[in-house]
Design a binder for these strands. Structure first.
Lengths: 144, 144
DNA sequence: TCGTTTTTTTGAATAACTCAAGATAGTTTC
DNA sequence: GAAACTATCTTGAGTTATTCAAAAAAACGA
């Protein structure tokens, strides 16, 4: 299914801005709204920041994009939706990488007690330091 | 160990504001900075917002408080530190509840691939709807 | 092609913090 | 206990990421 069809079947209109958003998000990795806006502009010439925010909301609501918000960084978006994957986040530079879930199908979806909550999602974030920052951290002139 | 001693052994000075912060955080459940500031003021009469932010940072850095930032709500703080517990977050009202980790000691700390990251923490958030919001959602006049 | 409804633009507003400089007050030292 | 040192607090401004609102423009079904 192409993007236009996906938009339509989600009840959304097909606009240049939204196609460009999907395209931009797909081209990068866990980008934030500003970076996506730049990608959109490079594709369609002009788009207001607000249109990008609105589009990102609409597409997330429709399930065409997934929004993640790691502590300390602005919201980021990805096209990989519907599977149960999690994220590695670098404490130093904020870089985000995907990881499949370790534990089978609907894994972490079983807390020891749900305290009466009706749970629909288990979100897992692995915090650490990415390979690049490890190298930089090892060089003397970067040390605090 | 009382709070004053804990502060001192963390290399921090003992001030009325910081004692009040610890006290306030302990008294509530996963409160945000503004709510904590109110608690502090009710205890010591006056404290600037900035002093509360600074105190919360210092205490978190020192390991006396834990900071969590669920997507969509401001940072929240708790005194339960050092154990490996996770959180239930209500999608509707933002309420946060603690849950012990399901899977043993250092549980989810094993992603299927670490992609070269050096991981120090696995954060798990269970998203759902809290008991109170379930009731409200069930009543006709709340329905959308 | 018309009309309806969604989307986009423009411009302002907000929440939640952060930054900076000087005043104040813990703590250590004598 | 007083002085000195430096962490903490106050005050006030600044920032980032995002939301709100109203009018203009563009999709799409009829």
């Amino acid at each position: 299914m192409d993007d236009a069809t996906a938009l339509r079947s989600a009840g959304l209109r097909v606009t240049a801005a939204r196609l460009a958003i999907l395209d931009s998000v797909r081209a990068g990795s866990h980008q934030d709204a500003e970076r996506i806006a730049r990608g959109v502009r490079s594709r369609v010439g002009h788009a207001s920041t607000q249109a990008v925010y609105d589009g990102l909301h609409a597409l997330s609501r429709a399930g065409l994009l997934r929004r993640i918000e790691p502590a300390g960084s602005p919201a980021r978006y990805e096209v990989r939706v519907g599977d149960n994957h999690h994220h590695l986040v670098c404490r130093r530079c904020g870089e985000v990488a995907d990881v499949d879930c370790t534990l089978g199908e609907i894994p972490c979806l079983e807390p020891s007690s749900d305290r009466g909550f009706v749970i629909d999602e288990a979100e897992v974030v692995f915090w650490g330091v990415c390979p690049r920052c490890q190298e930089e951290g090892a060089s003397p002139d970067e040390r605090g």
